[in-house]
Design a protein around this nucleic acid. Structure first.
Length: 886
RNA sequence: GGGCGAUUAGCUCAGUUGGCUAGAGCAUCUCGUUUACACCGAGAGGGUCAGGGGUUCGAGUCCCUUAUCGCCCACCA
């Protein structure tokens, strides 16, 4: 390596890390330092950045994981890759729907027509004051426009934070998950799934959230503890009765059978016979099924349509009738079109059935318990219990099971071959850290159904389809009308299929729109396609083109949180496999959690989040990055705050006394880098050019520090290649402190006296160190670099192995005798400047030879008077006498 | 119930394929220094590597087992 002709610019008297960010940011933007170059021939490194949800706010956990990705991006960029590092904004889905509703006090209404230049009456946080006013009903298209308007405000706040943090995203490459490009791609991919038979609709019982009144997918479930009671109910078998236990007596009315295990001796005599339910006196069969567990409850279960997933299994396997009463609004429906449900003939049973109509599960249960107690069919005490129950992850009421027509995409939940293929893809994908692969395996192996992608919500990407309406005015869901790909995106609620006119909407022999929207993951699963320009017809919203698609896909890296392996990661693999028969990326990097000081995961719902900007302002962006960079991928990190009671009230760092240890250290490191560089340049830069020629380093000690530098470069690079940024940082930092505290101190005198070798070594080390630190501390590194270079350090190359002859271990040797020499003065509690005399050093003869060559630096820095006496001995020993000061 | 991970100094964590007297930072204590850096430097104390077995010349590292913590999945009779 031989570089020269570097011009040393003027150095500041005092360095600082405060307020350095904005000027540098402007410079980066001006130079386009992080721009992806679609015309370049360099190898590409493409990153499938997670699009943050814009309706939320960013917390330190985001800063943590996005910094990890940025470290990789910056490293790869310096290694000569053409880095494609886009940013998306997730503004599709329920959180945004609710936020837009409350912010503008509107609600989407599918019957409302589109209004050009619609201006909402309200805006801001006055939603609560408007509680009594009705929300303004507007069309879906208007709603999407309001979303885009609100999102762009949020996006700017996000962008500001990411930039300040030094995330090296190419801001020309951005997308929104609700913008035209995303909707177009989501619809196009759905149509292709449909044409290949991978997307299909089915009318079947499924999990249903009664609050949001939408179907939910397996991936969105969350099991939570839920209190309940066991009720022992007696069914009439003509003899002593059959006792079953249930936590849901309100579903007795939907009971279609009693089920026990085929091997259960207790119930053998009942199989094939019927019993009568209490209260309603409905005759139901007693049947055998393997899924019944002998040791659960009474060993015999009441099968209702539907209480849980097992009920669905029994209903399907045993061909049982459907007696569903649970309405989509969470209320029991026993009277339909004025008629009471038809399977009850008993008169008193009928009147209770009538009473149940319109009741929530909760009040229906109260009615049933009371009735059962009165009739004497409730046996013994009601026993309280706590059980795990499935909830929609965003909901707060247990899920019900309701039959409805929904759209699904095959994901291996029902197709063994596809399941195997997807498992194999999980083996082919490079997980970082490796053990995260197990999460993927567990999930794919545990799938029990296809991916439910339709949602009965208003805001999201519309299904681009209509259905034919028959001559009687009934919608025929089997006759799907699809648009041509070229006109996407469309909204079937306002757009009209080819060959029809608007007047035929919902008319006999006309057409009817699919009103559901797709699940948000149905769009998010396409982020590689959206970011990389998959759509050859795209003329809107996109920065990349279809030419880029060929180069960028499959992508190099998917960074993401471990909590969304089953959703985002898996669904992206599914879509990519179905469309391209490829993995979407080579590697997946999973980041860990940020834990609060009580070791609880930091999340918005727990109210323990810390907003990052105050920390950036207090310590500087480099320091915050240093904190994040110190943690390995996939490892949790504790957000440890000193001097502070870690309660909710005081947690977010508004207390000036509070310190985040690692950030404090990070600030020290960046200051040290600035100071060390300034110092070295002040000695070295007396001339107008810097000599970085290795041949100019002739002194043994100087050569040996270059040897140390070389080791550092090699092992830091090795760590980075293994995606171990924390290990790389540790190695670089260790060398850096050693260099500052020992080497620089040693050669000061020689360097001041214009020694060519020392000056060149200092310059070479600094030149490399700044580049080693650049991914971690982009601001401090840029400042240092700017003192003796033009252009950005972030477009420079990552240091590579120096072409050195074999070097001695002079530096380590000197360090090992420096320590005891310092201790002599330390023990005597005198200044390090105090002179020493009669210094004797015993060590091996080889080491003596090396040491003699470089001893002048030791004599200078320790202020040794007279000669050093060397004694040959394998055991290292150092002694000396202090010269008495006046 | 099935799976994954963690457990090393007061705190936060390193410790790569078994090979040192087990390391670093913070915190604590002692001392020093102000022409690179007080957003500094030098030094000290502090650990039965969660417990118990085993393999090995040798175990923080490998195997078995127990305990505690965290997470994922299953669990609604």
């Amino acid at each position: 390596m031989s570089k020269s002709n570097k011009i040393v610019k003027s150095l500041p008297k005092k360095v600082t890390v405060d307020g350095i960010e904005q000027d540098i940011l402007n410079e980066w933007e001006k130079l386009g330092v992080y721009d992806y170059d679609s015309k370049s021939n360099k190898p590409i490194y493409s990153i499938d950045t997670p699009p943050p949800t814009v309706s939320g706010s960013l917390h330190v956990g985001h800063v943590f994981s996005y910094t990890h990705t940025d470290l990789i991006a910056r490293y790869k960029r310096m290694c000569g890759f053409n880095v494609f590092y886009p940013m998306g904004f997730d503004d599709n889905g329920l959180p945004t729907e609710r936020r837009v509703q409350n912010y503008f006090w509107v609600r989407p209404d599918l019957s409302a027509s589109y209004i050009e230049n619609y201006k909402p009456k309200y805006q801001g946080t006055d939603g609560l004051k408007l509680k009594n006013n009705e929300q303004d009903p507007i069309s879906r298209q208007n709603f999407i426009e309001l979303c885009n308007q609100l999102s762009s405000e949020d996006e700017n706040k996000f962008k500001e934070l990411w930039q300040r943090l030094g995330i090296s995203v190419d801001w020309n490459q951005t997308y929104q998950t609700i913008n035209n490009r995303s909707r177009r791609i989501a619809q196009k991919m759905f149509l292709r799934n449909l044409s290949r038979g991978e997307a299909y609709q089915k009318d079947a019982p499924g999990l249903w959230d009664v609050t949001f009144q939408t179907a939910v997918a397996q991936a969105e479930l969350e099991a939570r503890e839920y209190p309940g009671n066991y009720h022992a109910l007696k069914f009439d078998d003509g003899k002593d009765g059959v006792i079953i236990e249930t936590t849901r007596p309100e579903l007795l009315i939907s009971c279609v059978a009693l089920i026990a295990h085929p091997d259960d001796k207790r119930y053998q005599h009942l199989f094939g016979k019927t019993v009568k339910s209490p209260i309603f006196k409905v005759e139901v069969p007693v049947l055998a099924h393997n899924a019944a567990e002998m040791d659960k409850g009474a060993g015999i279960a009441m099968c209702c349509t539907f209480g849980d997933q097992t009920d669905i299994e029994w209903w399907r396997d045993l061909n049982l009738p459907m007696r569903s009463v649970m309405g989509k609004n969470g209320r029991l429906q026993t009277i339909i079109d004025g008629n009471l449900i038809d399977w009850i003939s008993d008169n008193s049973g009928k009147s209770i059935a009538e009473e149940l109509n319109g009741k929530t599960a909760f009040s229906a249960r109260e009615i049933m318990v009371k009735s059962l107690q009165e009739s004497g069919d409730l046996i013994g005490e009601i026993k309280p219990t706590t059980r795990m129950t499935n909830f929609y992850e965003k909901g707060d009421k247990p899920l019900e099971i309701v039959a409805s027509r929904q759209w699904y995409i095959s994901n291996g939940g029902k197709d063994e071959k596809l399941n195997q293929d997807l498992l194999q893809l999980g083996e082919d994908l490079d997980f970082i850290p490796e053990h995260m692969r197990q999460r993927y395996r567990n999930w794919v192996e545990g799938l029990n159904n296809d991916w439910l992608i339709s949602r009965q919500r208003f805001f999201g990407v519309a299904f681009p389809i209509w259905y034919k309406v028959d001559e009687n005015g009934n919608v025929n869901y089997n006759e799907v009308i699809v648009p041509d790909e070229s006109i996407l995106p469309i909204d079937p609620v306002t757009d009209v299929p080819a060959g029809f006119e608007e007047s035929q909407r919902d008319q006999p022999n006309g057409f009817s729109a699919e009103k559901d929207v797709m699940d948000t993951w149905a769009t998010s699963s396409l982020t590689p396609q959206i970011a990389c320009g998959f759509d050859e017809n795209d003329t809107v919203d996109g920065a990349t083109t279809n030419d880029d698609w060929e180069k960028l896909y499959p992508m190099s890296l998917r960074p993401q949180g471990q909590d969304i392996i089953r959703t985002w990661l898996f669904s992206t693999v599914v879509r990519s496999w179905l469309e391209e028969k490829k993995l979407p990326w080579a590697k997946a990097a999973l980041s860990g959690w940020i834990l609060d000081p009580d070791h609880k995961k930091m999340s918005k719902s727990k109210g323990n989040v810390s907003t990052p900007m105050p920390f950036i302002e207090k310590y500087g962006a480099d320091a915050v990055r240093y904190w994040a960079a110190s943690a390995k991928l996939g490892m949790d990190a504790t957000f440890k705050i000193d001097n502070m009671n870690p309660t909710k009230e005081t947690f977010p760092g508004n207390n000036n006394q509070a310190e985040v240890y690692q950030m404090k250290v990070g600030r020290k490191v960046s200051m040290k880098l600035l100071n060390a560089t300034k110092f070295a340049l002040s000695i070295v830069g007396e001339e107008s050019t810097l000599d970085l020629d290795l041949d100019s380093v002739t002194n043994n000690l100087d050569q040996s520090i270059l040897g140390k530098l070389n080791e550092t470069i090699i092992s830091a690079t090795d760590r980075f290649e293994k995606y171990d940024h924390a290990g790389a940082l540790e190695i670089i930092e260790h060398f850096f402190w050693n260099f500052c505290d020992n080497y620089v101190e040693l050669v000061k005198v020689r360097a001041y006296s214009n020694d060519k070798s020392a000056k060149t070594a200092l310059a070479i080390v600094l030149d490399n160190l700044i580049r080693l630190f650049a991914p971690f501390m982009p601001y401090a590194a840029e400042v240092c670099w700017g003192w003796f270079n033009d252009g950005s350090v972030h477009n420079e190359s990552w240091p590579t192995k120096l072409k050195l002859e074999e070097t001695s271990n002079a530096f380590d040797l000197v360090n090992s005798i420096l320590e005891p020499l310092r201790k002599i003065k330390g023990d005597a509690k005198v200044s390090p400047k105090t002179p020493l005399k009669n210094v004797k050093i015993s060590l091996s003869s080889d080491s003596i030879d090396i040491l003699k060559v470089v001893q002048q630096d030791v004599i200078n820095s320790c202020n040794i008077q007279g000669d050093i006496e060397y004694i040959e001995n394998d055991e290292l020993a150092v002694c000396g006498e202090l010269v008495q000061q006046d």
